[in-house]
């Protein structure tokens, strides 16, 4: 009796703290449509009205591209009727590639700022305004204060903030810095689905949820974005001829 009573108290406290942490947070979430993934997320998806961080698993250009596509997929499906703001300092995105991940060019407004500080300021303005369905920012460094401001702005505007933290140096992992984000993701490339003929199959990614508020971290291998920005769940590893070594990542 006593134990259940204290459990109820703990639940109450958790709810209370959650309400304190994110005032006026919208309850909605962008689901991935992948049960395996959505079930493990505390909000059942990428919560709108909060900040999410995405980092490439390494400094390689391909890892960066995978993280970009992962972000694109979420942004494209956040509020389909609204445009997206993509703030960055160095424009090395290739818009036709974004379109092939579901983000049609008419929906994306790019903001190329001179430094990270401006990117964060632009993101904050756009989030508070709420005219953009999702706001994506690419920065190298953003401290606790900056991420907390973004989180508050996202909660105010009720829009999703997606912060891509790019690698500055090989030994400076962006995920080492503390952050107020609701979820922090690390995306890396994995071998694609083998085809029965020569060619490259659908991309696979190693998706690490490094940290999430009110939930546990996990690692999954998923199929990359399709033309609508949706992820997929690969067939069970055991059924496949190759890639058995990947089972270590699953679960």
């Amino acid at each position: 009796m006593n134990a259940t009573g204290s459990l109820a108290t703990v639940d109450d406290l958790r709810r209370h703290i959650a309400a304190l942490e994110t005032p006026g947070r919208a309850r909605g979430a962008v689901t991935f449509g992948v049960g395996e993934l959505d079930r493990r997320l505390a909000d059942g998806g990428i919560a709108t009205g909060s900040l999410h961080e995405i980092t490439a698993a390494g400094t390689a250009l391909t890892e960066d591209a995978a993280a970009t596509l992962f972000t694109t997929g979420i942004a494209a499906r956040a509020v389909p009727s609204l445009p997206i703001l993509w703030a960055l300092t160095r424009f090395d995105l290739y818009a036709p590639g974004l379109e092939q991940a579901g983000l049609i060019p008419d929906r994306v407004v790019f903001a190329q700022a001179r430094e990270d500080r401006d990117v964060l300021a632009v993101m904050e303005d756009a989030l508070r305004d709420g005219s953009f369905g999702a706001v994506v920012g690419e920065v190298c460094r953003a401290d606790m204060t900056a991420t907390r401001r973004l989180q508050l702005a996202a909660a105010d505007g009720g829009r999703t903030a997606l912060l891509m933290r790019r690698w500055r140096r090989r030994d400076a992992n962006p995920l080492d810095a503390p952050s107020a984000a609701a979820t922090r993701w690390r995306i890396g490339c994995a071998s694609s689905t083998p085809l029965s003929m020569p060619g490259v199959g659908r991309a696979h990614w190693r998706v690490d949820l490094v940290r999430q508020r009110n939930g546990a971290p996990f690692t999954l291998t998923l199929e990359g974005c399709d033309a609508q920005g949706r992820l997929g769940l690969p067939a069970a590893s055991a059924d496949r001829a190759v890639g058995a070594g990947r089972r270590a990542h699953a679960a």
Binding site: L82, P83, L85, L93, A95, P105, D106, V108, V109, F110, A111, Q112, A113, R114, D118, A121, V122, D125, A126, D129, S131, F132
Partner: peptide, 23 residues
């Protein structure tokens, strides 16, 4: 939703040329 007012506001920070679409 008309984004023009917000575009102006952002342009006040980083300039009109820094805001663009890829066509």
């Amino acid at each position: 939703v008309d984004v023009a007012p917000l575009i102006d506001q952002l342009a006040g920070r980083i300039g009109h040329r820094a805001l663009f679409k890829a066509a």
